[in-house]
């Protein structure tokens, strides 16, 4: 094969393996964080027996899920029932491939950008795969052949479609300021002109709210509201397939946090780092760590909100989406366009 092609393929494979491994590890440890933080908020101890501080708990949970019996109820539509968990999980992971976690590094005499795919339409790819997430939940609900599951699936589709709209319009503000759909351009624009969250606060808040709805987290977890729907769309799932839904939820959280960081909090930018005059690779490592810190902050907020707020009622959810967030997002776009015309960006 052509040596250039081989090199590009090898580089991409290494990056994909690294990203995949890191994201999966963070997913596993988010379950531990969730349980420890919820215990802390509720003045309990939480899992602290397996390993120091309960740090080996995710490992034990994983083994438990693998060895549990995976029951397939006789009334489900089998092909779709088996496919649905994967359909939720895959879009969440694919979206991560366009997020830049750092600037370029020089390794082995080559300059390596710290993201998997620097595509021209990064934002659109993200929106495309976010809209794919609906299918997993809707199909899990339908194929379970159970009215609670179906209700959960329907609710989630309505919720995702409503909030996707507000999210997309909020992102338009960032796009107008940057003049590019490429995520690396959005980050470099923020490095020179200041973080977007500072002057696009309404857009930032709408994006974060919509991200909670897109990930089906409290206060937007109506698709699996246990007091009304048993467990919603994953009522009929057990064993590893059940845990796939949870892994997908955490993967979605990580991706949403990474996006909020990239779009509004300057991505990997550390203010004042350029003044220190560090060598390129050291600066890159500091910036990657800063990115991880910002993402971790968002993940903590996700957990914090879940154990603080009660669940919305369905009509409240729809009213907030269509009569609250959408008009604010539209007004925000108008405001940002005036600022951009006036030479702010």
């Amino acid at each position: 094969m052509d040596p250039t092609v081989t090199r590009v393929l090898a580089e991409a494979s290494v990056k994909i393996a690294l990203f995949f491994g890191v994201v999966l590890t963070v997913i596993a440890y988010m379950t531990w964080v969730e349980r420890r933080v919820s215990a802390w908020i509720q003045d309990r101890r939480g899992p602290n027996r397996v390993g120091p501080f309960g740090l080996l708990q995710p490992l034990a949970d994983g083994i438990k899920f693998l060895f549990k019996e995976a029951i397939t109820p006789p009334h489900v539509y089998r092909p779709v029932y088996l496919l649905a968990p994967a359909l939720i999980f895959i879009p969440a992971l694919v979206t991560f491939s366009v997020v830049p976690i750092g600037p370029t590094m020089s390794l082995f005499g080559r300059r390596i950008p710290l993201l998997i795919a620097d595509v021209d339409n990064g934002i659109l790819i993200i929106l495309a795969f976010a809209s794919m997430g609906v299918y997993g939940v809707a199909l899990a609900g339908w194929s379970s052949n159970n009215k609670y599951s179906l209700m959960g699936g329907l609710r989630s589709s309505a919720q995702l479609i409503s909030y996707e709209l507000a999210m997309g319009i909020a992102i338009v503000g960032v796009l107008m300021a940057t003049g590019s759909l490429r995520l690396t351009d959005i980050v470099t624009h923020q490095i020179t002109n200041g973080w977007n969250a500072l002057w696009q606060l309404p857009g930032f808040l709408i994006f974060v709210t919509a991200a909670f709805a897109e990930t089906n987290r409290l206060p937007f977890d109506l698709p699996e509201a246990e007091t009304e729907l048993v467990a919603g769309y994953h009522t009929e799932y057990s064993g590893m397939r059940f845990s796939m839904f949870y892994m997908a939820e955490y993967a979605n959280m990580i991706t949403a946090s990474a996006l909020a960081t990239t779009l509004y909090l300057g991505g990997y930018h550390v203010p004042g780092l350029a003044a220190l005059g560090l060598p390129e690779n050291a600066a890159a490592i500091v910036q990657v760590l800063a990115f991880c810190l910002k993402v971790a902050m968002f993940l903590f907020v996700f957990v914090w909100v879940r154990w603080t707020l009660p669940r919305f009622r369905y009509d409240q959810l729809m009213n907030l989406g269509w009569k609250g967030l959408l008009p604010i997002a539209l007004a925000h776009v108008l405001w940002v366009s005036f600022l951009v015309l006036g030479g702010r960006a």
């Binding site: 021209d120 339409n121 659109l124 790819i125 809209s131 794919m132 809707a138």
Partner: peptide, 21 residues
Amino acid sequence: QFLAAIQVIVYAGAIMVLFLF
């Protein structure tokens, strides 16, 4: 690339959800 992304967002994402419903 733009058309490809729009095809996924509009057709595979939005319109097909309607069909599914």
